[in-house]
């Protein structure tokens, strides 16, 4: 995989970020360096090795189905950039 200008534009769009041309060149360089580092693994024969998805040996960390205290609404809304007494307010997004 190669990081190029086109891919950066796509990632910007997906991450809702806007980079300057300078930042883009730097980003292309950085990401290519990171890939190069990870690609070192290709030097090993790993076809029998399961991917390591989780670092701990834990599994089935579950909770019983019980309702506990809810967060106070005023407290939750107080952290939002905009709200009325009931809802978080965001700039109009229309799905359709």
């Amino acid at each position: 995989m190669k990081i190029d200008h086109e891919l950066i534009l796509k990632l910007e769009k997906l991450a809702r970020l806007k980079l300057s041309e300078d930042q883009r060149s730097k980003m292309i360089e950085d990401l290519n360096d990171m890939l190069k580092m990870v690609n070192k693994l290709d030097e090993l024969d790993l076809h029998d090795v399961e991917p390591l998805l989780h670092l701990s040996n834990q599994y089935n960390v579950t909770r019983t189905d019980k309702v506990e205290d809810h967060m106070d609404r005023d407290a939750a809304l107080a952290n939002a950039p905009d709200s009325d007494n009931e809802y978080f307010k965001v700039p109009k997004v229309i799905k359709k």
Partner: peptide
């Protein structure tokens, strides 16, 4: 849930 009809300028979010 996003509600688009309560406010002309904003969408309202109920989580």
């Amino acid at each position: 849930k996003s509600i688009h009809t309560l406010d002309p300028k904003n969408s309202m979010i109920d989580l």
